[in-house]
């Protein structure tokens, strides 16, 4: 999905999730029912397949909204950059 940046949200997939989803980023238009990071995760998991597997409730995936770690209730809006992060392994 492509569109006006003012109306779309940019999703960024990192490390293992990028490999699993086969993309490093995409732009999406959020349905009206998706207003938080937690709802976004559920919406993406509903795509099924690898999305359902990687974003299942038991899987540890952190969500960052505009470069800050988000909680499930953190709002997401058009224009945001929302990243899905697998557990970190630096150092």
């Amino acid at each position: 999905m492509r569109g006006d940046p003012a109306e779309t949200l940019t999703l960024v997939y990192l490390a293992r999730l990028r490999d699993a989803f086969g993309a490093s980023s995409e732009r999406v238009v959020l349905p009206a029912k998706v207003t938080t990071a937690g709802e976004l995760r559920v919406w993406l998991a509903a795509r099924g397949g690898v999305w359902a597997a990687e974003l299942a409730p038991g899987r540890t995936v952190r969500i960052a909204v505009n470069h800050d770690i988000a909680q499930p209730e953190t709002p997401v809006r058009p224009g945001d950059e929302v990243a899905l992060l697998p557990p970190v392994t630096g150092g």
């Binding site: 293992r16 970190v88 150092g91």
Partner: peptide
């Protein structure tokens, strides 16, 4: 700093 870096800084090893 090292302990927090390992658990909180977004880096991934392959």
């Amino acid at each position: 700093i090292m302990d927090y870096l390992k658990t909180r800084a977004p880096f991934w090893k392959k």
